[in-house]
Computed example of a mutant assay.
Amino acid sequence: MKIAIDCRMYNSSGIGTYIREILPYMIETENEFLLIGKKSELEEYENLMNIEIQECDIPIFSPKEVFFFPIKKINKCDIFYTPNYNIPGGIKVPIYSTIHDVIFLDMPELTSKLGGLIRKIFYKRAYYLSKTIFTVSNFSKKRIEYHLGNKKDIVITYNGVSKHILEDDGAVYKKKDYIIFVGNIKKHKGLKTLLLAYKEAKKEGLTSGLVIVGNQNNFKTKDSEIIEILEKSEDEGIIFTGYVNNKELKKLIAEAKVLVQPSLYEGFGIPPLEALVLGTSIVVSDIEVFKEIYNNLDIEFFEVNNWKKLKELLKMNERIKSCSNLKNKQIRFTYKECSEKIKRKIFNG
């Protein structure tokens, strides 16, 4: 067989991480692959015998993607796989896709009415065109079925722990007195809840700093409520890291006392899993997917949006459940297993 894989998001965060992690396992077969994306990003695969790369930099979710995608080579393949719910137009071979979540259907307030309508069209189009849909949790599967229907074959693959977190780089990490938040600036990540909790906890004696992985200017220009909180918290130990590479992020998570993931919504939620591997204690909101992924592990939950409860947990961070390092234990979620589930379905039908 020859499988075409959309790799245009290879160097992005989120879905880019997903495709970078599964791709090495996906190509570990005797099958041939057509990788669609920028050759400069996919150069490590360029000289492999079973790989052909098709140069393409057409933006995702664009009219050009739907109406003018270079499909000639794709339609000579046996299968097309995309790691997202954007599907180019004109593809005649069976399509398999991963829909990580349907957040814009569950939380329409995250975008404009027009933006929500466009996303809804793309969600429905992906559902209609896909022979099989992969998703990353039972929660996401239920939400896909609720919004789009239950007529399709939906396979739960889960996400995994990235290679750079798992590999032994010989580094020695020493715990430091700070709390860490890893996430983007979107409202569903719950940063407002964390900032309110942290600000009040500092007033009541918390000594720990707060490290937010990201750029402060990005946060300030995107969310007026966060702007107001930050402007009143100038001297309260909040540090924005700016961009960090994988090595730096691993160190930041490993040396933190506590990782807090106060999300309002997730399809999976990877940072707590990485913290578990690195031996960092964890506090997460009690949203459904976190209960699914983390319920039987050493982890503290607080009621979603309840900054007062989170404040109390931060104040007693010395007594938060001690997280045992999972690195040398069996890890339930891996990208290898994720890839194997995708391959089994694609190759065996």
Rank of each mutant, 00 (worst) to 15 (best):
M1K: 14
M1S: 14
K2T: 12
A4L: 05
D6R: 02
S12C: 10
R20Q: 14
I22V: 15
L23S: 08
L23R: 05
Y25V: 09
I27K: 11
N31G: 06
F33E: 00
L34H: 04
I36M: 02
S40K: 14
S40R: 10
E43K: 13
Y45W: 06
E46R: 13
L48V: 00
I53M: 07
D57F: 03
P59V: 04
F61G: 04
P63R: 03
K72D: 09
F80G: 00
T82K: 02
T82V: 14
P83K: 00
Y85M: 14
N86T: 13
I87S: 00
K92N: 09
Y96R: 06
Y96S: 07
I99L: 09
H100E: 12
V102S: 09
I103C: 09
L105F: 06
M107H: 08
E109I: 03
L110H: 10
R119A: 11
F122W: 13
Y123V: 02
R125T: 10
Y127V: 02
L129I: 03
T135S: 03
S137F: 01
F139R: 00
K142I: 09
E145H: 10
E145V: 03
H147C: 09
I154P: 01
Y158E: 00
Y158C: 03
Y158G: 01
N159P: 08
V161D: 03
H164C: 07
L166S: 05
L166T: 07
D169L: 04
Y173A: 08
K174D: 15
K175M: 07
K176G: 00
Y178F: 14
V182R: 05
N184D: 13
K186A: 13
K189I: 02
K192M: 10
L194G: 00
K199R: 12
K203M: 06
E204G: 15
G205D: 03
L206Q: 05
T207G: 15
S208R: 02
G209H: 09
V211C: 06
I212N: 04
N215C: 11
Q216R: 15
N217G: 13
N218L: 14
S224E: 12
I227V: 15
I229G: 00
D235I: 08
D235G: 07
E236V: 10
G237R: 03
I238T: 07
I239T: 13
I239S: 05
F240T: 00
Y243L: 12
N245K: 05
N246G: 04
E248H: 12
E248A: 13
L249N: 04
K251N: 09
K257F: 06
V260S: 02
V260Y: 02
Q261C: 11
Q261A: 15
Y265D: 03
Y265A: 05
E266K: 01
F268K: 00
I270C: 02
P271L: 04
L273D: 01
V277T: 04
L278F: 03
V283N: 05
S285I: 07
I293W: 02
N295F: 10
D298R: 08
D298P: 12
E300G: 05
N306A: 01
W307F: 15
K308P: 08
K315A: 13
M316C: 11
K321E: 15
K327S: 12
N328L: 07
Q330K: 12
E337P: 01
E340Y: 11
K341E: 04
I342E: 00
I342Q: 01
K343R: 11
K343F: 11
K343Y: 09
R344A: 14
N348Q: 12
